[in-house]
Simulated scan of single mutants.
Amino acid sequence: MKTAVFDHKSKPAFIKYCFFFILILASTQTFAQQVRGRVEVIKDPLVDTLIAKRFEMNNAAGVPTAFSSYGYRVQIFSGSNRKDAYSAQARLQDQYPELRTYIIYSEPNFKVRAGDFRTRMEAQKLMQELRSSFSSLFIISEKINPPKTDPDND
C-alpha cells in the first residue's frame, strides 16, 4: 500500500529546496563579479619633471642613484654633550680627512660614527688604529652610503 503525501509536508520541503537553489545561484553570481579592472592614476605632470630633475642633478654631482647596502661603521663617541660630540668629530677629521663621519642624535645622546665599510675586518682595522685616540670604540652594523669611487681609476 502506498503512503499518501500530505500537502502540509510538501510545502516546507519545496521551500527548503527553493531557498537552497537561490543560495547556490547567489554565490555563483558573487564569484562572477570578481572581474579585474583598470586603475587610472591621475597626477600632476610636474611630478615626473621633478623626478627627472632629481636624477639629472644626482648624476651631475656623481651621487649614485638608488644604491645603498648594509655595512659597518666605527662609533667613536656617545654622550649627551653636543660640543663633545663635535670636538670628537673634529679630532677624527684631523687624523683622517678622507673618512666620512656622521653625528646621530638619539635622545638623549649624540653618537659620532665614522666610515662606510663593507666588511667587519675593515672596520676592525680602523678601530685598532683609533684605539689610542678614543677610549670607547664600537663596531656598528647599519645601512651605509656607497664608498666614493675614483673616476680616474679605470
Rank of each mutant, 00 (worst) to 15 (best):
F19K: 13
A85Y: 10
D48I: 02
N153H: 08
I103M: 09
V74W: 09
R113L: 15
K2M: 09
G71L: 01
F55P: 00
K43A: 10
Y17V: 08
N153E: 13
D7I: 10
L126T: 04
F55L: 08
R118N: 14
F55R: 07
P147E: 14
D44N: 14
L137F: 07
R73L: 05
F31Q: 07
I51W: 03
I24H: 01
T101H: 08
Y70L: 01
F138A: 14
P64Q: 10
V47D: 07
T65I: 12
F117C: 10
N109V: 06
V112P: 12
S132E: 10
V5Q: 07
R36Q: 12
D150N: 15
K125Q: 15
P151K: 10
T49A: 09
V63K: 08
P146R: 11
R113P: 00
E107L: 07
I15E: 12
S27W: 05
L50S: 05
V5W: 06
K53N: 12
Q95S: 14
F6L: 15
Q124V: 08
F67L: 10
G115W: 13
F19M: 12
I22S: 11
D116L: 06
M57F: 02
G71P: 02
G71M: 06
Q93E: 15
K53A: 12
A90E: 11
T28W: 03
M1N: 10
S69I: 00
L92N: 04
A85P: 06
D154P: 03
R113G: 01
Q95P: 00
D116I: 01
A61W: 02
